[in-house]
């Protein structure tokens, strides 16, 4: 079945079986492997991408549900000049990652929540990141990173 959508500002059209998950389309068809598959059961959030401006779990959505939509992955948030997005930079500065497996999902969720809140306290960040799990358990620095990244985005 044919599907057309926009991924990281590029129009994409492909012929796919209807059961293709958005995350598999992103990774296997577009070779954008920054988006990870962690639990594959919509709990861990490693597969988080933006669909039409909102964070969603791409392992629990069919690519056909995103047809005609705008998808942004971690590759799409980095400026063309090779510098980092302010949220990525904050994760680097504040040591917000250890093994890095959850990081792409954390950053995509964090950018979404920074966009919805003018200011963020620790409690709000922790509540909003409920759907992103870090099995290195590096949450303390992740919260610090999100706070700094959001402040930087709002400057």
């Amino acid at each position: 079945m044919q599907v057309s959508l926009t991924v990281n500002d590029k129009a994409v059209t492909a012929d796919i079986p209807p059961r293709t998950l958005l995350v598999d389309f992103i990774r296997d068809h577009l070779n954008l492997t920054g988006t990870h598959v962690g639990c594959d059961t919509a709990q861990c959030g490693a597969c988080t991408v933006h669909l039409n401006g909102h964070a969603i779990k791409s392992c629990n959505v069919l690519v056909l549900q995103a047809a005609g939509g705008q998808v942004v992955t971690i590759e799409g948030v980095t400026p063309a000049d090779g510098t980092l997005h302010p949220m990525q930079e904050a994760f680097r500065q504040h040591h917000g990652l250890q093994c890095g497996f959850c990081t792409a999902g954390m950053v995509m969720s964090a950018i979404d929540l920074a966009g919805r809140h003018a200011s963020l306290d620790d409690q709000t960040i922790r509540a909003e990141l409920d759907g992103n799990l870090c099995r290195c358990t590096g949450y303390h620095n992740i919260v610090a990173s999100v706070k700094a990244g959001a402040a930087s985005m709002h400057q």
């Binding site: 919509a42 959030g45 988080t48 669909l51 969603i56 959505v61 969720s109 409920d130 759907g131 992103n132």
Partner: peptide, 9 residues
């Protein structure tokens, strides 16, 4: 319900 990403869908 669920988490932020689940609530979006």
């Amino acid at each position: 319900i669920g988490d932020r990403m689940v609530r979006q869908m």
